[in-house]
Write a protein that binds this DNA or RNA. Sequence first.
DNA 1: ATAGAAAGCGGACCACAGTCCGTTTAGTCC
DNA 2: GGACTAAACGGACTGTGGTCCGCTTTCTAT
Lengths: 209, 209
Amino acid sequence: MDGLRLLPLLDGAPVERSDAARNREALLAAAQELVSRCGVEAVTMDAVAARAGVGKGTVYRRFESREGLMAALLNHSETAWQASVLSGPPPLGPGAPPLERLLAFGHSRMETNLLHGDLIQAAGHSGARAFAAVSFAAMHVRYLLNEIGVCGDIPILTTALLAPLEQVILQQQTHIEQLPLDRIRRGWDDLVRRVVTADPPDSVDVVAP
Amino acid sequence: MDGLRLLPLLDGAPVERSDAARNREALLAAAQELVSRCGVEAVTMDAVAARAGVGKGTVYRRFESREGLMAALLNHSETAWQASVLSGPPPLGPGAPPLERLLAFGHSRMETNLLHGDLIQAAGHSGARAFAAVSFAAMHVRYLLNEIGVCGDIPILTTALLAPLEQVILQQQTHIEQLPLDRIRRGWDDLVRRVVTADPPDSVDVVAP
DNA sequence: ATAGAAAGCGGACCACAGTCCGTTTAGTCC
DNA sequence: GGACTAAACGGACTGTGGTCCGCTTTCTAT
């Protein structure tokens, strides 16, 4: 008699129905295959739906938009990467001094961003990337800067360090300006060194929110 | 008898026919009006064509794509901005010491990038922006860094400084992280200070190409 | 087992970016 | 002025992202 019982367990996650889960798997698999067989371009919403044997509406129900679908695909590799940052071997993972970890972090992120270039671009500003990737990277860099003992507005400095690692920027440097990856990597090391070793600004009263 | 006479004056610009010129004007005006009356979203290729009283094909003939059209719109304000950098009053224009010019440059670019946010986004990687805007800004920053006497890989440092001024990054900071503009501005000043005042790296053998 | 309700499903449908090609027009040369 | 050519034009057409809504499936409660 009370409709409350119908609500998902204690109001937590809206529970996922079995067919929904099955379809999500199928869609991700279909998309993955399409992207690895014919490139990102070929990943058409109709194509994915057809290959997964579902209607187009279903694709949009699971993943908001095309960008959302791409973001979901990205999340797989992204998660693996996060794991290697959090618990992989040094210097990327824990164990090395924070400055070395920061340098390794930059090189690693540079590589993955270039590796998944077109996927990242196709994902655009959507979904999980704005959440997972960006905020994780920011969190980690903030943490390392704190460990190193850098003074100043850490969140802003973090953005400044992360910005040149963004796919768009790297793309520009490698594809248009034709800079060798090596040089870009040295550039990162240099940038970090400059940011980290500078004297603190006159007034340091800004605190991370 | 010789077809050479038919070629445009000494092979320079492919000469623009009068109707073509007229239509370009009309299209730009139509687009400009649409964007300022109904926002960038409303700038549909059909809408622009209709308002300008031409066919859709004509729009695509003049401006490659929607992004191209947006880039063309941007170019107007961009040109004015470039003028104020090259010959406006200090500290943005010439007359102030280079460090102050660099700081002012950042503030100014930040403002215009935020002001034309959606237009920039709609222009994407297209046409004139990749040319005019980006390369002009890069040129100017390289020049200022040289004037200041900064050592190291100037092109790479330039990219590192320019990256956090990109629209995408600023958008993220202001709209998602809700950071006040003031703080971002101070962040720029701090970043410049750190980059500029650091000791030169051990080996400085990289030269701008 | 069965009924009821919410969640999920599918594919027709719409809007818009971008293409194509037969027709028109602006210049040029005699 | 008239003929000729290359450029420009226009709008029908296509492909794809995204929406909508009537139908189906799953799950829960009895």
